[in-house]
């Protein structure tokens, strides 16, 4: 552990070698409800640690706070109380955190090519008043080839399929030399081969000890591909090896009323989601029911 940590190249602010990669201590995210004198909680009393190089699936129903958690760790959002630490200090000083946003948050008509998108990841390293050097471009092209997207380099970002776009954003995080990779529902809307391609890339990150958090609805994949599964529904329901975390009792607790049947034979789990999206003040009402496995569930914003 300590030798692995000492191999880290230090960037941004100092990484404390004794600290966990990510540590949350009693974190609460709340905001006042519109027109009412009550408080809405996006996350309640979250405490956990994540160690170097772990690959973790964050699972929970819509509105469980998965996106909120990602934004906390990325330093995009501050907790209402409690502490978020990355390598022993607040995330706001680190430039080693790669954040792959939900695709719905990006304007894909923007006039920018794939290689320019990946180059954006280098801007923190390049610094103000400087232009990308040949070395930066060669890093960009290396990162594109690591995600099998070299042939897409000169295309406009909107010309790509959803899976290709996800891979390009992962390449951007690699170009950023991210040591922590946060992926917010990267599998949503992708076909199986595209999902497989993303998992292959993530497996390729293991030797580099990149710590990965991936938010997903797909319990099968979570059980299959990750070191630990975090089961989230505003509070931490379970956080352990897949076989320990994904028990029927835990799943019932996380999905509460939204789940109707667990079909344990082949690990296939049938769920119904009828979840209020209370996080999103603009989107009052009910997220409509979807039957089938979670992998087929359309994603929705969850804060």
């Amino acid at each position: 552990m300590s030798t692995a940590l000492s191999n880290l190249r230090l960037r941004g602010i100092h990484h404390q070698s004794s600290a966990s990669v990510i540590a949350l201590e009693n974190v609460i995210v709340s905001y006042p409800s519109v027109n009412r004198n009550r408080t809405t909680y996006a996350l309640e009393a979250l405490t956990f640690q994540i160690e170097h190089g772990e690959q973790i699936a964050v699972v929970g129903p819509n509105g469980a706070g998965k996106s909120t958690l990602m934004k906390l760790i990325a330093g995009i959002l501050d907790p209402s109380s409690g502490s978020v630490e990355v390598y022993g200090s607040g995330p706001g000083g680190h430039i080693c955190i790669g954040y792959v946003p939900q695709r719905s948050q990006i304007d894909f008509s923007f006039p920018v090519t794939v290689e320019e998108v990946v180059m954006m990841g280098r801007v923190g390293k390049i610094g103000l008043f400087r232009w990308p050097k040949r070395e930066d471009w060669s890093i960009v092209h290396d990162c594109l080839s690591r995600v099998n997207a070299s042939d897409l380099a000169r295309k406009q970002i909107g010309e790509l399929s959803g899976g290709q776009q996800q891979r390009v954003f992962i390449a951007r995080a690699l170009a950023q030399e991210a040591e922590i990779l946060l992926l917010d529902e990267p599998l949503a809307g992708l076909d199986v081969p595209s999902q497989e391609a993303i998992f292959e890339i993530l497996e390729g990150l293991s030797p580099d000890n990149v710590t990965v958090l991936l938010a997903t609805h797909d319990l099968e994949r979570a059980a299959d591909k990750f070191d630990r599964v975090m089961l989230l529904n505003r509070r931490l329901v379970a956080f352990d090896k897949p076989s320990v975390a994904l028990t029927p009792a835990n799943l019932m607790s996380a999905y509460s009323g939204h789940m109707h049947r667990i079909d344990g034979d082949e690990g296939r789990i049938l769920l119904t989601d009828e979840c209020h999206d209370q996080d999103d003040a603009d989107q009052a009402g009910t997220w409509s029911a979807v039957d089938g496995t979670w992998s087929e569930v359309e994603k929705s914003e969850d804060g």
Binding site: Q105, M119, L128, W131
Partner: peptide, 17 residues
């Protein structure tokens, strides 16, 4: 490059500090 990033992906701009 900074204006391009804050226009294309403000969340990236934040994580690049």
């Amino acid at each position: 490059k900074e204006f391009m990033i804050i226009s294309f992906d403000p969340l990236l701009a934040t994580t690049l500090r």
